[in-house]
């Protein structure tokens, strides 16, 4: 088949993978699980100077049902852990997780009886951001890395969260 530019005009032919992933990665709506100090830097990333909305994360929905990526920003205590897991379970597929900061990644400086040593003990994490707290630019870098990961996802891939 030929491409007749006079007739077809602004038409792009591509694969479903590429198109769908392009839509998904450029509109990752975060679910901000802002638990502690990292939440302040998350707010800074959402404010005007570092503007996370440039990357498509226009809406920081506090509703898990309407979000794509959960940004766990802060210390996850054992008391809060089950609530984080429940909110993650309420997010619809496809969903991703960014563990922001040292406490969410590994428990941080709190090697103690009350702190969950890394949120990846209860939910699967896609991108970890180091820092205490990480600069807003580091969070934006993590978002860009997540976008690259989303772009590579094959369509119709079996998701590990879907029950067999």
């Amino acid at each position: 088949m030929g491409y007749n530019s006079k007739v077809e005009g602004d038409v792009i032919v591509t694969r479903v993978d590429a198109a769908l992933n392009w839509f998904r990665k450029n509109s990752l709506w975060p679910m901000p699980m802002g638990l502690a100090c990292c939440a302040i830097e998350l707010m800074a990333a959402g404010a005007s100077r570092f503007d996370i909305a440039r990357f498509g994360s226009e809406v920081m929905r506090f509703s898990p049902r309407q979000s794509d990526v959960m940004i766990v920003a802060g210390t996850v205590t054992y008391k809060m852990a089950m609530a984080v897991k429940r909110i993650y379970d309420q997010m619809p597929e496809p969903k991703w997780v960014i563990a922001m900061g040292a406490c969410a990644s590994t428990g941080g400086m709190y090697r103690s009886y009350a702190v969950l040593q890394g949120v990846d003990r209860i939910i699967p994490v896609d991108v970890y951001v180091a820092g205490c707290p990480p600069r807003p630019e580091a969070l934006l870098d993590a978002l860009i890395k997540l976008q690259n990961k989303v772009a590579r996802e094959p369509i119709l891939a079996a998701s590990p969260n879907v029950a067999a």
Partner: peptide
């Protein structure tokens, strides 16, 4: 009570595991 904590389990409420101290505290 050790700083690392002791394991405990309450289904649907919370759980706790000892933290790896690596020679600390």
């Amino acid at each position: 009570f050790p700083l690392a904590g002791k394991p405990s389990e309450m289904p649907d409420v919370a759980f706790s595991k000892p933290a790896p101290l690596e020679g600390g505290p």
